[in-house]
Simulated assay, not measured.
Amino acid sequence: MEDHRFENHCGIDLIAIGRAMLTDIKEHSFIQGGSTITQQLAKNMLFTQEKKLERKVAEVFAALELECNYSKEDIFELYVNTSYFGNGYYGVREAADGYFGKTFSEFSEYECAMLAGIPNAPSVYSPNAVNESTARRVECVLESMVKNRIISQEQAYNIEMEQ
C-alpha cells in the first residue's frame, strides 16, 4: 500500500517524489509524502519523524545505501518489524498479537489487509479506532492489490465479505 513500485526502484521513487513536491509547492506545506518503503525504513532506523528538508535529503542517501547492502526481502522484513502500528505496537508481529491476539497463521485475509493499511496513519486506521476510516482503509488496500494485479476483483470482494 505504501510503495507499489517497491520491487522496481533503487530505494527512491522519482515519480512519487515529483508528485509530492508538486503538491507540497502548491499547498506551501509538507502535506504529501513521496517516500518509498526503503526511505521509511531509513527514517525509522536513523532519523527523527521531523519534517525537514535536510532530513529528507539524508533519508534519500540512507535509502540508496540500504538498497546497495540489503535485498528487497530483507528491507521489507526490516520495515514491517520496525514500523509503528499504533497503540504502542512496533512491528507487525507485536501489532498482530496486540490487536487480534493471534499468530499470522490464524489471520483472516481481511485482518491482513487491515494490518497492511495501518502504518500510514496508525491513530486513524488501527482496529481499536473501529470507525468508517478503518473499514475504508481496508477497501483501499484491497483496491490497490487489485490494481497492482496481486489479487483479482473477485478475491477482493470475498475478503471484504469476511468482515
Rank of each mutant, 00 (worst) to 15 (best):
15 I>M: 08
17 I>E: 09
17 I>V: 15
18 G>Y: 08
18 G>C: 08
21 M>K: 04
22 L>T: 02
23 T>P: 00
24 D>T: 06
37 I>W: 05
39 Q>H: 04
40 Q>K: 03
42 A>Y: 03
49 Q>F: 06
49 Q>R: 08
49 Q>G: 07
51 K>S: 12
53 L>W: 11
53 L>K: 15
53 L>G: 05
54 E>I: 09
56 K>I: 06
58 A>S: 12
58 A>L: 12
61 F>Y: 11
63 A>S: 10
64 L>H: 03
64 L>N: 05
67 E>N: 15
68 C>P: 00
68 C>H: 07
68 C>Q: 13
75 I>M: 11
76 F>W: 04
77 E>Q: 13
84 Y>L: 10
85 F>N: 07
85 F>M: 05
89 Y>N: 02
91 G>Q: 09
93 R>N: 14
95 A>L: 03
99 Y>M: 12
102 K>P: 06
105 S>Q: 11
106 E>W: 03
109 E>R: 15
110 Y>P: 04
117 G>D: 03
120 N>E: 15
121 A>I: 04
124 V>T: 15
125 Y>W: 06
126 S>C: 13
131 N>A: 01
131 N>Y: 00
135 A>C: 06
136 R>V: 03
137 R>V: 02
138 V>P: 08
140 C>Q: 14
141 V>H: 04
142 L>P: 08
147 K>V: 06
147 K>N: 12
148 N>S: 07
150 I>D: 03
152 S>P: 07
154 E>A: 14
157 Y>E: 07
157 Y>R: 13
